[in-house]
Write a protein that binds this DNA or RNA. Sequence first.
DNA 1: CGATTCTTTGAAAACAGTCAATCTGTGTGG
DNA 2: CCACACAGATTGACTGTTTTCAAAGAATCG
Lengths: 191, 191
Amino acid sequence: MFAEFEKFIRAQAEITDEDIKLFRDTAIEKTLRRKEFLLQEGEVCRYKTFVSKGFMRTYRISNDGTEHVLQFSPENSWTTDPESLENNTPSSNNIVALEPSELVMWTKKDFNYLFEKIPNLKDYSQKLVYRNLYLSRQRIYTAISSTAEEKYDEFIQMYPGIISRVPLHMVASFLGVSRETLSRIRHVQVK
Amino acid sequence: MFAEFEKFIRAQAEITDEDIKLFRDTAIEKTLRRKEFLLQEGEVCRYKTFVSKGFMRTYRISNDGTEHVLQFSPENSWTTDPESLENNTPSSNNIVALEPSELVMWTKKDFNYLFEKIPNLKDYSQKLVYRNLYLSRQRIYTAISSTAEEKYDEFIQMYPGIISRVPLHMVASFLGVSRETLSRIRHVQVK
DNA sequence: CGATTCTTTGAAAACAGTCAATCTGTGTGG
DNA sequence: CCACACAGATTGACTGTTTTCAAAGAATCG
């Protein structure tokens, strides 16, 4: 699990062998089976976590009991609840494994220590947050400006790999459309 | 204009008199009349900008020519296109004054210089980005999970001051509903 | 005041959601 | 290996919501 992370982080930032040792010494590895939770609503998120294998999904449950998917996290991406982690507040989100998954995690404290010791990490982290912010803005724009069909098309464009790995009703939930509507949209397009 | 910024930043972070001098020496002040642009689609965003008085609005124009409001920025808040600023890429957004406004701006270069000189600034900036990210996520969640009426109610809750300062059709555009729908929602609620 | 911008209203049409039933594929246990 | 259960996907009919279009009324800016 750590091996995948090492490969990933070396590709993303200038990282020395010593840095890698620091990462490794503080990392916690975790394996999840399908449908196991990394985080459940009400818990405080304790870890920055990197998905080295598998597939995670973040969702929230609304008052009427419906699930709404906020994020898909395939291997080689990060998944956490930054708000809960930063402020030590109970999370409103659930993070669950969609496939058997392998995670590499760090506590906030350890990661702060890494920030001090690994100069390039702060820059990388900053960039990551910014990218997150752009993507969020883009998603907001799509949500307020597009029809269901346009949302679906953009999803396919932006995350081409995802559609084949998750049930369609979760894609529908991610897009904010009912599963039936998504089904009909897709059927029209096949023609 | 700078006076408002000084007051604001002192309240937000531990800032010394020397820090203030640094801020001031690099700041550019700008006054905008109603409907004047801070940034237009296609331009590269060059400044971090603080709204010390007035009211700014960020919007994007979709293919069919419709405006979609991404952000409202009243006095004592920041407004920029972070993506364009960071990557020197042409912006897809327009930022325009809704009221006569006064701005305090810094180039990216100068602000990086400030980051080096003012240790607490990085933390403050980090927090700001994070808060932005939470708010964006919240807005995404609302967009995919709520009815038009719920969206409006949440807007009123979250930004109580805004509704009285902007035309309703811009609120509608922010929420992703037609102005007619918003009008009807509001009318029902008055009962 | 005059022009422009903004808001409201009504009626029709388009769109998306709900409900219920059916179909499909997958994997499990007998 | 088959039968069955289960999760997921699709379909049709219906309902409800939202958009669109058009017109008129209200408010605001210069």
